[in-house]
Amino acid sequence: MANHVPSLALRHQFGDVEQQKEASTLGMWVFLVTEIMFFGGMFLAYAIYRHLYPAAYGMGSNELNLILGAVSTAILICSSFFMACAVNSAATGQRIALTVFLILTICLAASFLVIEMSEWYDLHQHGLMPGLGFHTDKPDASHIQLFFCMYFAMTGLHASHVLIGIGILSVMTFRAFGGDFTPVYYTPIEVTGLYWHFVDLVWIFLFPLFYLVARHAAK
């Protein structure tokens, strides 16, 4: 390995570049595990209320647009794929490809948010925003409102992660275009990738739980 690596490549507390990269990856995974526990608590609350009020969950779920949910799932998976390609481009030293893949990831993340916001707006127009003039003709309105509390809390928390991800990805795009990353040192791209795939991972579970599994429970 070349002796003249950029100063960012190896901080003095590490023995070699490989060890430094493994330490960063491990640190990111520890953070992601705390995030998994954070979302895990909300998934648990979802499961308990679904167990208690299955019919209300079913009626709430049928108000959601299944096609929009499926399309936004596909969009997030696409963005995850582009992010993975960005990591590969960074590892093989393709600066322009890296920049382009990062921009594509940001575009898809933004379109995910646009679709989600339009669905939220739609629900608000139908009077299904908890606390803001919630009303429904269906029986057991208070527990349908509870379903939408869970829906907006969990998709909202997820959307805030997407928003933070767009911020991180934007910074990475500028750094990548400026030539900050080499095949020796691209740990920030790798770690950003881990974060982005985590955001995708959470949605992979949110989509079936809100859009799919309760649909037929209304009877």
């Binding site: 299944l66 949910g69 499926a70 799932t73 596909a74 998976i77 696409c78 995850s80 794929f81 993975a84 989509f207 079936p208 859009y211 799919l212 599994v213 649909r215």
Partner: peptide, 15 residues
Amino acid sequence: FAVLMVLTFVTTAVG
């Protein structure tokens, strides 16, 4: 990516 997309389609259809 391809497998993930197919599974998304399957899970939506089954839903």
